[in-house]
Write a protein that binds this DNA or RNA. Structure first.
Lengths: 234, 234
DNA sequence: GGGGCTTGCCTTACGCCGTAAGGCCAACCA
DNA sequence: TGGTTGGCCTTACGGCGTAAGGCAAGCCCC
């Protein structure tokens, strides 16, 4: 008896894939600092050292995470571009970048992890290749396409950098916050003026006062406008 | 006897300033991962716990580093712009950004540290204020200046991102590297074509094949060209 | 069918890390 | 002169990544 009723096995045998999936879920839920070998093992119902039979140490685990998001980005970008077959290079690139951004927003830890790697993760090259394909198909020389890749920089990867986070830390002590704002207005007049100007004519429907999606697309257009002048036939 | 011949004192008494200066020197020389409380204390000829009389823990130490580079950047940018009093907003911004970049190149650990902070370091606001001043002085509305700040993103801070680092890891086993290159050309045709195109007509004097300074300035011009269309009088 | 090998997981232990708690000694002030 | 204070040290705790080895179950080949 026993081998035929196998479904009762207390747990499936652990593997690199299971470990990576669990790690991603853990990091999505609790952030990078929660990812320790002991904690991940506990999440899998196992002891820490057991992970070393499937992963080459912590660095290897991080490599696995990086590869996972890199392929997620690449396939998302590929799918997005395939959905608009007739578009010009701008709209196709835009779709790629927005797809990459969507992935990054799902995994807020990914930008820091990607840029912390000492070398470009191998999986990212495939993504860059797709961007290059779109550019050269759009008429750019490889020289300019190369520069464009640099110009896009972290935008191509969809990094959602929130330059201003005025709400960080809750809203306790609003009076003190206002006092600090007044003090800030004296030391940093232009910043204060900008905040005032932006909050006053807030007739537009941006939430808070920084709509990162809008900023992202504005930057995209800025770069695209600048790039367009470098088309050989222009 | 003793108090008059003070210069013989075995060491000066340690302070926040001395600790921060030593920390910056250590990190410049050996990277962020070398910065531990014990190591920093050893560097100062002291035990780890002594640091806690001058710094509020490791996080406070990192805050100190962040503040130090922020003020270094701000003052460098201010000095750079002051050196060209008659220029238009483009050249003045360019001077600011290149000054910031120079600081970052002196402290390669700074970008990751700055962007790892949960909130924008206070000292960075002063730097942004200077950029805003240049923009509004150049005729931009606060709305567009705000967007420009987002558009510049990490460029404003001079982040030197090296997208391609083909030499990482030495040059051992050149044959294997070439084999890998061939395999890569099959999987990533556009990337391979770009590398080929760029290395063949390398008549220009760029070192290696990515001159990050050139890429940086190309991106600056791209953004500036795009921004210029948003001037109200254009 | 049984001995040896492989596989998968566990136990123990080491040297790092940040830091809480408290001791000791010299300088200073009353 | 004696108490107080400040600067530095000692000890210790829990957590980290991981090296080294143990132990039981399954498999292969004779």
């Amino acid at each position: 008896m026993g081998s035929r009723m196998g479904a009762r096995k207390p747990r499936e045998p652990l593997s690199r894939e299971r470990a990576l999936a669990s790690a991603i879920a853990l990091v999505d839920a609790e952030g990078m600092e929660a990812l320790t070998m002991r904690r991940l093992a506990a999440e899998l119902g196992v002891e820490a050292m057991s992970l070393y039979h499937h992963l080459p140490g912590k660095a290897g685990l991080l490599d696995g995470l990086v590869d996972a998001v890199a392929t997620e980005i690449t396939s998302a970008a590929e799918r997005a571009e395939a959905d608009a077959p007739g578009g010009d290079w701008r709209t196709r690139l835009r779709l790629r970048f927005l797809a990459a951004r969507a992935v990054m927003l799902r995994h807020p830890w990914a930008p820091a992890l990607l840029s912390s790697r000492p070398t470009v993760p191998a999986g990212v090259y495939a993504y860059y290749d797709g961007i290059l394909a779109t550019l050269v198909d759009g008429g750019f020389s490889y020289r300019i396409a190369h520069r464009a890749l640099h110009a896009f920089g972290s935008m191509a990867l969809g990094f959602a950098q929130e330059v201003f986070r005025p709400d960080a830390g809750g809203e306790a002590d609003a009076a003190a916050a206002e006092a600090e704002m007044v003090a800030l207005a004296e030391r940093l007049p232009h910043l204060a003026a900008m905040v005032a100007a932006e909050t006053h004519d807030a007739a537009d429907p941006t939430l808070g006062w920084c709509d990162s999606q809008t900023e992202f697309e504005f930057t995209l257009d800025l770069l695209f406008d600048g790039l367009e002048r470098h088309l050989p036939r222009a």
